[in-house]
Design a protein around this nucleic acid. Structure first.
Lengths: 150, 150
DNA sequence: GGCAATTACATTGCACACAATTTAATTGCA
DNA sequence: TGCAATTAAATTGTGTGCAATGTAATTGCC
């Protein structure tokens, strides 16, 4: 039977898990940076576009709910996407407080150009699709539990 | 036999894996925020302190190598830790270009106060330690491969 | 109908992250 | 030895991330 971990061992593990998630996220951002630059997107902007390609026209808060980002982050990001001509920000006619984010023709066209981006991560990971699906599921579970605890 | 994924399916998976890593990292930051606030630390500062508690006195670039962060990120962060009285920034006598980061007495004392932080993540995750160790290893492998490919 | 409470988004201020540039110290080589 | 090339940090500028606050529209309750 294994002894209970000491506080020191816990800090070690914590360092490893926290840091593993943190540094993987930064490493993926760096991997994608040169690819996304060609599309004129940053990594968070790419995540927003992925969400919009799946479902067009959400309000700012619906998008924030999905990405768990607040208006302080999204408002300036969306203004930059608007300035790039990829999305439009339209006030809801029925409720003028709401702002709907809709893809422009150019924004929709970008989806085709982005189609080859994921292959890069797949290749870099040296994993099968099934392994990546598996890892994704584990992370989603961890994230949802962490969110529930916060 | 499963058909090869379409570009659309690839974008779906990409969205899910990228987003899973990204959102888990943000969720962990948010979980720790109230705990770390009591210690007077931000999440990246906590990761730096974890590194220093393991090995005191590295140069800025050695620390950057370990955390894969550059001086543009570390310099201001370390100045804030210095301003909080947790670390000292000392020029190397032999090579004045180098700056060593060393813990102050207060910085070393903080380790004891941080000892209870990891338990929070362990509880939130609803996982066994072995499961977390397993997930950590997978992430480290993915991160190292992504870093090698970048 | 009138008005306080709520809601949706925008703004401000602070702390990363990182590319690009600058500054200062050291190295290496003719 | 002298000086170009290299190295280590620091600085600058842009883009998130988020708490706290502000503003305008809507709702709910009397």
């Amino acid at each position: 039977m294994r002894a209970a971990p000491t506080p020191n061992e816990m800090l070690q593990l914590d360092k490893q898990l926290c840091f593993a998630v943190y540094s993987t996220s930064l490493a993926m951002t760096r991997l994608y940076k040169p690819l996304l630059e060609k599309l004129g997107l940053t990594y968070p902007q790419y995540l927003v576009m992925l969400a919009l390609w799946e479902e067009d026209g959400p309000t700012v808060s619906a998008l924030g709910e999905r990405l768990s980002l607040d208006s302080g982050t999204l408002t300036p990001l969306l203004k930059r996407l608007e300035a790039s001509g990829l999305v439009a920000r339209l006030r809801d006619v029925a409720d003028e407080r709401r702002v709907h984010i809709t893809l422009t023709a150019e924004g929709r066209k970008l989806k085709a150009k982005a189609a080859n981006v994921p292959a890069c991560l797949l290749a870099a990971s040296e994993c099968s699709i099934d392994e990546l699906v598996q890892l994704t599921r584990q992370l989603q579970t961890l994230r949802d539990r962490v969110k529930a605890a916060a």
